[in-house]
Amino acid sequence: MKILVFILIHVLLIIIPNLSISRTVSVCWEAELKPPYIFKDLQGKLKGVAYDIVVQALKSQNLNVKNMVLPWKRCLSNAAAGKVDLVPNASFKEQRLKFAHYSLPLYTTHLMLVYNKEKFKDIPKIQKISELHKFKIGGVLGFNYSKFVGVDIIRANSRKTLIDQLLLNRIDFAILQKEVFNE
């Protein structure tokens, strides 16, 4: 009888966790949407190239998808806490390896410096990142600016706030993604 109970307990310990495995993947998209990669249509539904690729890939594996749109920092903190399974827009950062695995890039963007034409009558001539230290540079809070080593970046809560700071001459340049900014 003891052997039968022992076997039954072990069988249950093997089966029960497998029964509770969720077939739903929670995907966290940043609230600062990035057309054409992720945006909302007129009905408020998520759309975009990245969205389509992620949803199609998960559904092809017979997985349900639970999409959520949250502030970027919350997406990352939820991923670190194990509350979110996938954060598709996360770029590589060494510190994120503590809680995340990376795939090959879903897409790539190009960072550019945007400036106010009223402040600079001529196009500023900047050849190297090291030349940026003499300017006030703005970026979005939580975004990856690891290529801007040695540059003090003033953080804004959103792309809109960043552009507003630029137009109000609070910063000299805004670092933005070309593909997103041009949308």
Score class of each variant (00 low, 15 high):
residue 153 I to Q: 01
residue 54 V to Y: 02
residue 71 P to M: 02
residue 23 R to H: 12
residue 126 I to E: 06
residue 124 P to V: 06
residue 171 I to G: 00
residue 140 V to R: 07
residue 157 N to W: 00
residue 118 E to I: 06
residue 39 F to C: 12
residue 110 H to V: 11
residue 25 V to I: 15
residue 60 S to L: 10
residue 107 Y to L: 00
residue 144 N to E: 03
residue 117 K to G: 05
residue 131 E to H: 05
residue 171 I to H: 01
residue 15 I to Q: 05
residue 3 I to D: 10
residue 127 Q to V: 04
residue 181 F to N: 04
residue 44 G to H: 15
residue 107 Y to R: 06
residue 84 V to L: 14
residue 80 A to E: 15
residue 34 K to A: 03
residue 58 L to Q: 08
residue 83 K to L: 14
residue 106 L to A: 05
residue 102 Y to L: 10
residue 94 E to S: 12
residue 104 L to M: 11
residue 8 L to R: 03
residue 75 C to G: 04
residue 3 I to G: 03
residue 158 S to W: 00
residue 26 S to A: 15
residue 66 K to A: 15
residue 69 V to K: 03
residue 2 K to S: 09
residue 111 L to I: 02
residue 179 E to C: 02
residue 77 S to L: 06
residue 73 K to Y: 06
residue 94 E to N: 10
residue 59 K to H: 12
residue 9 I to E: 02
residue 183 E to V: 15
residue 97 L to T: 14
residue 75 C to E: 03
residue 130 S to E: 13
residue 138 G to M: 04
residue 98 K to L: 12
residue 162 L to P: 00
residue 134 K to Y: 09
residue 134 K to D: 06
residue 92 F to N: 02
residue 182 N to F: 10
residue 20 S to D: 07
residue 75 C to Y: 00
residue 67 N to G: 14
residue 156 A to F: 06
residue 5 V to Y: 05
residue 135 F to E: 07
residue 85 D to P: 05
residue 87 V to H: 04
residue 142 G to C: 04
residue 68 M to H: 01
residue 120 F to V: 08
residue 62 N to G: 13
residue 59 K to E: 15
residue 117 K to I: 10
residue 69 V to F: 05
residue 151 V to D: 05
residue 147 K to L: 10
residue 63 L to Q: 11
residue 56 Q to A: 15
